[in-house]
Simulated assay, not measured.
Amino acid sequence: MKNIAIFASGSGTNAENFVKYFSGNKSVKVAVVLSNNRKAGVHERVNRLGVPSFAFSRDEFVEGAPILRKLTEYHVDYIILAGFMNKIAYPLLEAYPNRIINIHPALLPKFGGKGMYGMHVHEAVVAAGEKETGITIHYVNPHYDEGEVIFQSVCPVLPTDTAEDVAQKVHVLEYLHYPQVVEELLSK
């Protein structure tokens, strides 16, 4: 059994999707959810589904040791970022090399880097007149959105699409592919 920790900062829809996807799975389990936001909706979503969640301070995150203790307590094999809005601290990168996975709402290397998240990405895609966008699932390294690409999926961007339209299309791809790709990776 592989245990995963989900790191999330917001409402937790992707985290909830992971918990539901792996519910009853014999080889992968969402063991714990960690957040940098005590008031994030993710806590209520996953607690309702029987998954414990914990919040941590900025200092605890930078130091790393308190988070690593929590990950050890839950026997975490992989960390999955699902709407987590902080750059991963070095102690976590060192403890989990090639075992931290993120999803980006565009086709990297386009529209990646610091400040490129959520609606900022979709607005940039529309402003650039892109004909397609999508998702990129990748390993996390010390640089924003530069880790090795694991998987990409594409959707069209129509001339009439707004950033909100693009966000909806990308969100469908996230729900469809992210848990499945993680499951395939962890079963290797």
Rank of each mutant, 00 (worst) to 15 (best):
A55D: 13
E130F: 09
L93F: 06
Y90K: 15
S53G: 03
L68G: 02
D145F: 05
E174A: 10
Y96F: 15
Y178D: 11
E184K: 14
V121P: 00
P159E: 11
Y139N: 06
S153G: 11
G115T: 04
G41T: 01
D161I: 09
L92A: 05
N14H: 05
G83Q: 05
R58Y: 11
V154P: 00
Q168R: 15
R69T: 08
N17E: 14
A128Y: 15
K110D: 11
I4C: 04
I100F: 00
E63W: 02
E73M: 09
N141S: 12
R69P: 04
L107V: 04
V121W: 00
V181L: 07
S53M: 02
L158S: 10
D59S: 15
I80C: 03
S35H: 05
K2L: 05
V46W: 03
A40N: 07
I101E: 03
N25C: 13
H171N: 14
Y178E: 12
Y178S: 12
K87C: 10
R58T: 11
K169T: 11
P97T: 05
M85D: 07
H122Q: 14
H177F: 13
G113D: 12
R58P: 00
A128M: 11
L173Y: 05
Y90T: 13
K2R: 13
N14L: 10
L93I: 05
H75K: 13
N141P: 13
K70G: 01
V46C: 01
H177P: 07
E16G: 02
A95T: 04
K131D: 12
T13I: 07
S57M: 08
